[in-house]
């Protein structure tokens, strides 16, 4: 029998699809019987997805310009050394 504590400690492996078929089946069984763990699992998955779905910071143009300038300086310094 899997307890809620067991479920929580296996949550990462479950979400990342890294557990064995046997363990997976046991966890799914627990999920179907335990509304609390179902909510935790569902909202953790959504937490990961919402962060993954965020677009990259657009680097502000002036930051990009300073980077390119620094890079060109470096390149010409390296070429002349």
């Amino acid at each position: 029998m899997i307890t809620c504590k067991d479920f929580l400690s296996e949550l990462n492996e479950f979400l990342d699809d890294e557990c064995s078929a046997k363990v997976r089946q046991e966890l799914e069984q627990h999920l179907s019987e335990c509304p609390n763990c179902w909510v935790i699992c569902d909202t953790t998955k959504k937490t990961i997805n919402i962060y993954r779905g965020t677009e990259h910071y657009v680097v502000p143009p002036e930051v990009h310009e300073r980077l390119i300038t620094a890079l060109r300086n470096k390149a010409s310094k390296l070429r002349h050394s």
Binding site: S9, N12, I40, T43, T44, K46, T47, I48
Partner: peptide, 12 residues
């Protein structure tokens, strides 16, 4: 990672 995910889940 587990602790980070669960804490963020909690905040969100």
């Amino acid at each position: 990672l587990l602790r980070a995910r669960l804490r963020l889940r909690e905040k969100l």
